[in-house]
């Protein structure tokens, strides 16, 4: 059984179909990146996996349980979310922010347990954030802030993590740092990652598998190396794409017609 099973999923907003008939199974410890042009339905898909949108048809299951029938707490124990523009509340320390990831474990009326505090300390150390633990979140740089948001999601200790454009606004070095950290979690902890990315080169280099969406429909699903070289990818973007090999890594270059 796959960790994540999406079966004939459709989501509508009023009379507009946002995504239609998407079927997708993702195994544990797999990094699956969703690519596609703007308006393809990438964000809708990750929001539906995270339980923030209800399917108009079809189902999303995590470890065999329907996401739409879970309570918020049950969902938070199974799937963590990193949004495109996370809200960073002024005045909160980095430790307190990361500790929000433990909410589903200790509930709303009890203080975090020793186990929760230890889990937060472990994540802070793993992401080299322990030296910032007592700093106000708004004093962090963009790269540090995004690492902190990832730390909060990791503190949830879920089997699935969905990330919507997690490297938006980061410089090249911080983009690679962020994706390296994530890949380490996939390889070492068996985390299942569903991410959306606009950068096809990084998407191809880090993901095990790419899923191409266009106009709310699944166009292609396969190993990263195959999808970045496919004609379907170029067709979806309406442009010619050239893939070159640099030291064994695929680099996708758009070619102006």
């Amino acid at each position: 059984m796959s960790t994540l099973e999406i079966n004939e999923l459709s989501v509508r907003a009023g009379s507009t179909a946002l995504i239609s008939d998407i079927t997708l199974n993702v195994e544990a410890g797999t990094w699956c990146t969703i690519v596609g042009p703007n308006g393809a339905g990438k964000t809708t898909l990750v929001e539906t996996i995270a339980g923030l949108r209800r399917p108009s048809k079809g189902t999303v299951s995590i470890a065999g349980e329907l996401v739409s029938s879970m309570s918020e707490r049950e969902r938070a124990l199974r799937v963590a979310l990193v949004t495109q523009h996370p809200t960073v509340p002024s005045g909160m320390s980095v430790r307190d922010y990361v500790a929000l990831g433990r909410t589903a474990y200790h509930g709303l009326l009890r203080a975090p347990s020793a186990g929760d505090r230890q889990a937060v300390a472990d994540v802070l150390a793993r992401l080299s954030l322990d030296e910032y633990a007592n700093r106000d979140v708004v004093t962090l740089s963009g790269g540090e802030r995004q690492r902190m948001v990832l730390a909060r999601a990791l503190a949830q200790a879920t089997m699935v993590m969905v990330l919507d454009e997690p490297i938006t606004g980061l410089d090249l070095r911080h983009q690679i740092t962020m994706l390296d950290l994530l890949q380490k979690e996939v390889r070492e902890c068996g985390l299942t990652v569903i991410a959306t990315l606009h950068d096809l080169t990084l998407a191809g280099q880090f993901a095990d598998r790419l899923v191409l969406l266009d106009h709310g429909r699944l166009v292609l699903d396969g190993p990263s190396g195959e999808v970045v070289r496919s004609q379907e990818l170029a067709d979806c973007y309406g442009m010619k794409l050239r893939v070159i090999d640099v030291d064994g890594a695929d680099v996708v270059i758009p070619v102006r017609r």
Binding site: E47, R75, V88, T103, L108
Partner: peptide
């Protein structure tokens, strides 16, 4: 008693829900 829930809500509705908070009920 709602203090902890309001701290979680400081990250916005969608993120609060993804952290396990039943935002609408709270």
């Amino acid at each position: 008693a709602a203090g902890q829930a309001l701290d979680v809500m400081s990250v916005g509705e969608d993120e609060s829900r993804s952290l396990g908070l039943p935002v609408r009920r709270v």
